[in-house]
Design a protein around this nucleic acid. Structure first.
Lengths: 340, 340
DNA sequence: TTGTACGCGTTATCAG
DNA sequence: CTGATAACGCGTACAA
């Protein structure tokens, strides 16, 4: 059961390989109907499938891109990926997906391997720790788009959330609803994690601009699993802020764990808003007010830019996509009667 | 800036291509230190990266597998995928991911394209509608594993949830907690959707075995978006069952929407259990009792079987992985005081 | 309109 | 220990 090749088809159809090739590439302008039919029959009879690998070798294009993410289990990642895959589908491209778990070593290995595999481009959620490699990719003119994070000193297309805008949306909303004592909950500060850094930074910025007090105790940046106990401590001291802003879905979960444990009432005891529109936001009681990331748009944009790069030279650009406030009940006006 | 090839390295190192090739493949047994060094230097200087595509052509292996799923956005899919990717990472394999949206046409196209791309194997969540193609794949000895669903008449490795067991776990638990009037909520019946079919079927079976009444009105199989209204109707007629079994996460969401709308109290007004351990199960109030699918194990098993097939012949086998009851508060004993 | 011959970048074989 | 040379399967001038 040897693999059938073009030569086999040619032999059976009694023509040469090139004729078969022309046929496959629809260059039938000068081909007799008779020949076409014979080739078609031979292909059908032999169940011939062109070997794209061989073609790639010649044409220097694999119609495949590599997408390197931290963890496909994160909702944002999944959605971005889905959007990328949809775009690729339209261009008859395929997507190779790799998880780095935010480990620079894994990232390096994946980039090397996919590069060797001749992928036509990369969309990466960068760990930020392989600056030399990123530079080499750019030097080699490998189409490349960063998503979610950028890396200082790397001049490349990047598609990010407008984090400052997201924080503004959240904090201003809380303020408008009458909350003045606002806390933030985030994982530990890490300068290379752009969204986190920007959000925490913007938080201070926005509070200051609104003339609100910045209480350091209310800026909880902590290992995710230890967030509930940090909040516990605040509660014990009776120092819980009136409202909590969770900077992403992971931290939101911890806040909810805390809230549930103490049977606090939202938003009466503490109001709640978060970035990432979690799927259960509307069925939770009370329904959760969130700032949604335009995940699909981000994926779409990233893919678009990548295809533009593959089509020809473009200048690197940074795109900040707009977040969206989805108002529900968890941060309703202070003192206002809640209907749930 | 032409791509640098092995020939360039050979020229610079003053050896032949074959020697470079040997070097790369670590066949240095009879190679002089001197030569080794020269080659190493040339490679470094030229920043040479072997072209895996060319190698694949020769070796008939791409170290790449195709994974074809309905929709990467589903939690089960994401988790299975993550497990597959982890396994592949260990074998230095890559994963191409494709979404079919349960459309047989898309599925056919993807299989054809990936086949042409010479992937070394397939893991598929099959739509079930391309029987001829599946058969051709098997005929061609293409390593293949089905996940989540099987297809009648196709003799191939398949990794599935033990659906009957999952339903038993759910219903027996409800019964043990004192519930007798149990309803089921599911998307519309469709014979090729194995999990759904098996769960609905098993539900009747288990009820019968437990000598419980099978009330047709309580078996709600309906378009997901219309589920709440179906439940509304039951409620209006005062015919709501004591407990509801949602056969997956999607339907669970609809039940929760219904519950929230009417401000019903769980489990007092209606108890709730579902298949799929949604991420918010423990922070919801009350926390949700669920039947968890062993998604990671499923992915791992599928990948293992695929690698076994690639290693040599194996006999097709069906694997039924065990679900797990995660007891929380949404289906606590009828009449028992709840502490949330 | 079709066939010949060569190139794509690598590996395998076999001399030397 | 190293180097020619022939594949691998396909695309494409160029020749016929």
């Amino acid at each position: 059961m040897r693999k059938v090749t073009m030569a086999d088809v040619a032999r059976l159809a009694n023509v040469s390989k090139s004729t078969v090739s022309q046929y496959l590439n629809k260059r039938y302008e000068y081909m007799s109907e008779e020949t076409k039919k014979r080739i078609a029959e031979a292909i059908e009879q032999l169940q011939y499938r062109p070997n794209v690998i061989a073609r790639s070798l010649k044409q220097k294009s694999t119609a495949t891109i590599g997408v390197i993410v931290f963890n496909i289990l994160h909702m944002l990642t999944t959605q971005v990926l889905r959007a990328i895959e949809d775009m690729c589908q339209q261009h008859d491209f395929h997507v190779i997906v790799c998880n780095t778990d935010d480990d620079p070593e894994k990232e390096r290995k994946y980039i090397d391997m996919l590069w060797a595999k001749q992928v036509d481009g990369f969309i990466i959620f960068p760990t930020g720790k392989n600056v030399d490699l990123y530079k080499k990719m750019i030097e080699a003119r490998l189409p490349l788009v960063f998503v979610d994070r950028t890396v200082e000193g790397i001049d490349v297309d990047a598609v990010l959330l407008d984090n400052e805008g997201a924080v503004q949306l959240a904090v201003r909303y809380l303020v408008k609803q009458g909350y003045k004592h606002i806390g933030l909950v985030a994982p530990p500060f890490a300068s290379h994690v752009i969204p986190r850094t920007e959000r925490i930074h913007a938080f201070r910025h926005v509070l200051r601009a609104a003339n609100l007090p910045i209480e350091e105790e209310w800026i909880v940046t902590e290992q995710v699993k230890r967030i509930p106990e940090r909040l516990d401590a605040l509660l014990r001291q009776n120092k819980l802020p009136e409202a909590i802003f969770a900077i992403n879905d992971l931290t939101l979960m911890e806040v909810l764990t805390f809230v549930k444990k103490h049977q606090l009432s939202i938003p009466t005891d503490v109001a709640l808003i978060s970035i990432d529109d979690v799927p259960f936001a509307s069925v939770y009681t009370p329904s959760l007010t969130t700032i949604a990331q335009p995940a699909f748009d981000m994926g779409k944009k990233a893919a678009e830019r990548l295809f533009m790069q593959m089509d020809g030279e473009t200048r690197p650009q940074m795109f900040r996509l707009a977040p969206k406030l989805i108002e529900r009940d968890s941060a309703k006006k202070r003192g206002e009667k809640n209907e749930w």
